[in-house]
Design a protein around this nucleic acid. Structure first.
Lengths: 248, 248
DNA sequence: TAGAATGAGTTGCGAACGCAAGCTATTTGG
DNA sequence: CCAAATAGCTTGCGTTCGCAACTCATTCTA
């Protein structure tokens, strides 16, 4: 079933809006079964339903980004969750892998505190009594539901944690991780100043890409968790920069 | 149609979960029309739909509280919106009237900045390009999606505005406005310290009630906007305390 | 190892839904 | 003052939905 789920996600991600009947036929199951699958995916926040259709959420929305490469992201999130013991307090930034990590933690751990600048993550784990969320203040980015700006720094200074989990939009040899959004990159820096270690969660695909904004976290102990498809070229590049790599 | 809407809300608020067909018959319209009405109400975030049913959102959820006495609250919100000019920056707390005020402002004003401790409000006006939201940081209350705790104070100190709009859960003669939730009451105090005037938005019904936590905003210039059903007894009580009253 | 319990899927059916077309008042404008 | 436009609602129709009953493997378990 997990297999079928990811096929569905791939099709929906491609086409944005698909008929339920079409999906049922294409995957060789009844429409009833397909509806069940789709309902489950909607529960997870990965797609939206309409009468007769399954649609992708606004791709600026974290929900939409989650659906893309869901399997890899889930593996990465699961692996990252092993770093977090029951009762811990961690910081989590707004990337889609990070949201998934929060979800996994909410489902498997006990008595966690998650400090984040993502209102999406806070509401994403709202149903779990096991995690308590602290939301960092800031300017609310409409599309992404992420807090940015100077207030994030002011808030983050109030905390200090072992680990900060962040996403990334690219990697440039000799420069480091990059981000596509300047405000969010700055928020990451603010949060990183209050954590002793930064763990980057990102699909291997990102290593071919280059976001415009270097993350610049000099002197920070960094590690990355990614999937198995990362080319040797980039593994070596990461090693040269002193970033330890974990394959999920 | 606004008339029918409020009847629907009343029924749904009472019964929590009603069949569409029942509502259609009771109000003497076709099921098609009823579905249209219900869809519109869902758009506004007042109810939830299920196949064949209309339900009230979790009453701890702001959405659920909104449905109760919607008409009065909307009148109050509209009246309050007259105090806010285009381009202004205001603070808004997490009450249901406040959420409605934010909605009205988003629909009618231009280029506003709303500073709030309610993640619900931030997402409630997310579709409007005319308001930019600043969300104060804090501990995320699961049910209400409101930020509370010491971080709210830290954040609020970064701002100073003309007006803060708040809700209230009760009024006690000689004591003042009260709240049912200690954490939220404290958040209100934090925000009030950064505003020169506090405007309380509350249905007249609340004046018979007494929340357990006195708001205690000594020396603050206060006014209240409420609906026409407020008894003379309480009007005099408010006047004695130097609180000016506006009837919406 | 037989038999119960579980999970994933299907079929069948009545009820609910979306959409388009049509009806009837009220409003608008020349 | 009458015709056209508009708003609010209904009817009709084909499609989709939720639910319950059923099948068929797989997994426990005694």
């Amino acid at each position: 079933m997990a297999k079928r789920d990811s096929t569905i996600l791939q099709i929906v991600t491609d086409q944005k809006r698909v008929e339920v009947a079409y999906l049922a036929e294409r995957l060789g199951v009844s429409t009833v079964t397909m509806r069940k699958d789709l309902d489950a995916l909607q529960e997870k926040g990965l797609i939206l339903r309409e009468h007769g259709y399954a649609m992708l959420a606004n791709p600026n929305d974290v929900g939409g980004r989650l659906a893309y490469h869901y399997d890899e992201k889930l593996l990465i999130a699961r692996r990252a969750s092993e770093l977090v013991p029951d009762g811990a307090t961690i910081m989590v930034e707004s990337g889609s892998c990070c949201a998934l990590l929060a979800r996994v933690l909410a489902d498997t751990k006990k008595n966690l505190t998650i400090i984040t600048n993502s209102a999406f993550i806070a509401s994403y784990v709202r149903d779990s009594a096991q995690v308590s969320c602290t939301l960092l203040g800031g300017t609310y980015q409409r599309d992404s539901q992420v807090m940015v700006g100077p207030l994030v720094r002011t808030c983050a200074q109030e905390f200090y944690v072992d680990r900060l989990f962040i996403g990334a939009d690219g990697w440039i040899d000799g420069v480091g991780f990059t981000n596509a959004d300047q405000m969010r990159a700055d928020a990451v820096r603010s949060m990183a100043a209050s954590a002793s270690e930064v763990v980057v969660l990102t699909e291997s695909e990102k290593f071919g890409q280059r976001g415009a904004i270097p993350m610049r976290l000099p002197g920070k102990q960094m590690s990355v968790i990614t999937d198995g498809n990362i080319p040797d070229e980039w593994r070596q590049s990461l090693a040269r920069s002193g970033v330890s790599v974990t394959i999920a």
